[in-house]
Simulated assay, not measured.
Amino acid sequence: MKYSRLLLAGLSILFLSGCGTTVHESLKVQQGSKISIGSGRTVVILPFADYSEADNLERAYRRQLFVTENITDQFVNYGFHVPVQDDVFTYLADQKIIKAQSYTRAKTDTLEQELKGEWSALMKSELQRYIDLANKAQQQDMGDEASVTRGLTQQEIVKIGRHFSSDYIVRGRIIQYKERQDPSWNPAKKGLLTFVSGVTSKIAFGHAESEVYDELNTTVAGGADAAFISGVTDGDLNHAIAWGAAGAFLGNMAHHSGKIPQAVVQLRIWVQDAYTGNVVWTNRVNVQVSPESVLADYQYDALFEKATEKAISTLIDNFAQVVYNVPPPPPVIRAKR
């Protein structure tokens, strides 16, 4: 009775202490965290050309915004002055260098919500087809000009630099910004059961021609693994058959598990002298980010945030190293667990 009361009191304390909220904050601009090479210098960041095949204008805009904000943070960390981005957009639109394009969401909210439901793969593919058709029709209504990019002459670069009293003009390309599945077979990422049945399936059958055959292969591989282990351990045929059936069931479940999302971001950046229009530096980076383990955050927004920040910080650090001879950042050393 005494132990029951202690357990009840402990649980009560645990629940009461759990009331409230959890706050995560991340201040992006860390003043003084890097060498102040940009003191007294101004950088104008132009909108990036997007070649990543964005499926609609809203997502393309969000992608552009996130890339631009991260570039701004990195230059500010190095001490550069950056004009307000909305002022830059307004100036470019007034000079007819860019064309302001409003967007309205395609009326696919209901379909997108249904896509998250417990529908069959065939039904989900049909829902996705209608969503794609609606988005395609929306883009066609906006005209072909929405997807056109244009270059800038040296005179235009100098004019922009003079208007904002800047030293550098930053331009770039979003080459790739996509989600995919991480091909890693690390069991810490994929899960132990998925790893075992998946490896057996790939070794025995190779790559399947369709999702249906891939599922069948994994089911057979799970059954074969379990039957083999049972046969080796006790040699009883009935046990091997029973364990084989259980293994096939678990193998089928494993086929629908173990997915490792991966965010892929590939960018190129040019930095031009605002007084002459000459390119003083350019480089390209490709970053792939996926969860470290099955217990990590699997949401794509977190993965893309990490990938974008890493890609841009790597590029701007390289700019500082090449143009201003800033030493590279020290390697990150992880503590051994």
Rank of each mutant, 00 (worst) to 15 (best):
D109G: 07
R173V: 09
R173C: 00
A60C: 03
K178M: 05
N186A: 14
G117M: 11
R59Q: 11
A146K: 11
V332L: 11
R63G: 06
L122K: 12
N77P: 01
T314C: 02
R180N: 05
E114W: 10
F205M: 01
E118M: 06
E112V: 11
K96M: 10
A208T: 00
V43T: 08
V280H: 03
S230T: 11
M1G: 12
V29K: 12
L122R: 08
L11G: 08
V43W: 05
R337N: 10
I260H: 13
I241Q: 08
T218A: 06
I160C: 05
A121V: 15
G18N: 14
T308N: 11
Y298D: 01
T218I: 06
Q154D: 15
S313K: 13
Y78D: 00
N286K: 15
L122E: 09
P183M: 11
T233Q: 10
G18H: 08
Y91D: 04
V279P: 05
G247D: 04
D297N: 14
I13W: 03
P47W: 04
Q95M: 13
V279S: 15
A302M: 02
K190L: 14
Q181D: 12
G143M: 10
E309I: 03
S33V: 06
Y324I: 14
V294C: 01
A146C: 07
A274P: 07
L152N: 03
T153N: 06
Q138A: 15
P183W: 12
V285Y: 02
A296E: 04
K28H: 10
G10D: 08
V196L: 13
G161T: 09
K310G: 06
L65S: 14
L295D: 02
N325L: 11
P328S: 13
S197Y: 13
H81P: 00
H207W: 00
E126V: 02
V158L: 08
I316D: 04
L152S: 07
V44P: 01
I260Q: 12
N325A: 15
R5K: 04
D317Q: 14
E211T: 01
D94R: 14
Q262E: 15
V264K: 06
E126K: 14
I203R: 08
K96A: 14
R41F: 11
D317N: 15
K116M: 13
V323F: 04
T104R: 12
N77Q: 14
A100Q: 11
S125D: 14
I13P: 00
M253A: 09
L127A: 03
E145C: 03
T233I: 15
G161K: 07
S166L: 01
F89P: 03
E145V: 13
Y51P: 04
S197L: 04
L6M: 10
F304C: 10
Y78L: 08
N278S: 13
G191F: 11
A335Q: 13
V220E: 02
G191D: 05
A311C: 00
S293R: 09
S52M: 04
V23P: 01
Q288F: 08
K2P: 00
L8S: 12
